[in-house]
Amino acid sequence: MALDEVAARGLVLLGCGKMGSALLRGWLDRGLPPGAVHVIEPRPSEWLQGTGVALNVPLPEAPAVALVAVKPQMMGEALPAMTSLGGGRTLVVSIAAGTPLRAFEAAFGAGTPVVRAMPNTPAAVGKGITAIIGNAEASEAHLALAESLLSAVGEVVRLESEGQLDAVTGVSGSGPAYVFHLIEALAAAGEAEGLAPELSLRLARTTVAGAGALAQETGTDPAQLRRDVTSPNGTTQAGLGVLMDEQVGLGQLIRRTVRAAAARSEELGRG
């Protein structure tokens, strides 16, 4: 199954909020015909209405893919609109946090291939990363198709087990919020040292974005990048002395942060 088959058989998108819109924009930019996409969205944006997709109309009988992009708390109300697509002819892909594979298997019935995915918000600018895992019915072709669709908004990695999604949620799913807070904290610290708020925020935002780009584009071990910036007895070493404190430093704080997010993901998965 390839993207040309998606164009021929159709794709159903349940929910077109921020993440659904990012995916749809990526697919259209890659040449997927708007008429091949059927969107179920009770509150469509002006942008969505202008894309030319089939919006809130009867669904095709056996589309290639049905992608679930609604919030978990809306799942019970929204999912019945597409459960008729179960049984095996349509690949179901979910980007809903905290909803396990077994829930979709129960909703769509036996024989339905399901791929569960965890993207993150940088998908909005094509810089996201998504982790995927399939159920027993999901073949290599199904996984490759899901990977192709999700790569429209960034990188895609495959997991070995569904249980790993909780850790993924704690690291990359929730991770952008940690980075945004780092920008806030760095800007506030600059203000405390006498910088104007606008200047301090600009310095903090661009420093974090630039450092991330350097790490991403060079592929260099971040520990080596840190060492490259750190002169003996210099200013960076003085700052890192605080951040790298073994008892109360950033490493310990981030471990507790990721554990808290992963634990909450586990709770949501248990229902």
Rank of each mutant, 00 (worst) to 15 (best):
V156W: 01
V156K: 01
V157G: 09
V157Q: 13
R158C: 04
R158Y: 01
R158M: 02
L159I: 07
L159D: 06
L159S: 03
E160Q: 15
E160A: 15
S161Q: 15
S161R: 14
S161L: 08
E162A: 02
E162R: 02
G163V: 14
G163Y: 06
L165K: 08
L165P: 01
D166I: 12
D166G: 11
D166A: 04
A167K: 07
V168A: 06
V168H: 05
V168D: 00
T169R: 08
T169S: 11
G170T: 02
V171A: 04
V171G: 07
V171K: 06
V171T: 14
S172T: 14
S174D: 07
S174N: 10
S174T: 12
S174M: 02
G175Q: 03
G175D: 03
G175N: 06
G175Y: 01
G175K: 09
P176G: 08
P176N: 06
A177L: 04
Y178K: 05
Y178F: 12
Y178Q: 04
Y178T: 02
F180V: 00
F180E: 02
F180G: 03
H181N: 13
I183G: 06
I183K: 01
I183M: 14
I183N: 11
I183V: 11
I183E: 08
E184Q: 14
E184K: 11
E184P: 01
A185S: 15
A185G: 11
A185R: 02
L186D: 06
L186N: 06
L186Y: 03
A187Q: 05
A187T: 03
A187F: 00
A189R: 10
A189N: 04
G190R: 06
G190F: 05
G190D: 11
E191R: 12
E191S: 01
A192M: 11
E193K: 14
E193D: 11
E193L: 13
E193T: 13
G194C: 02
G194E: 09
G194L: 07
G194F: 01
G194Y: 00
L195T: 02
L195K: 11
L195R: 03
A196Q: 14
A196G: 13
P197Q: 07
P197K: 01
E198K: 13
E198V: 10
L199C: 07
L199K: 14
L199N: 09
L199A: 14
S200W: 08
S200A: 15
S200D: 08
S200N: 12
L201V: 05
L201T: 12
L201K: 13
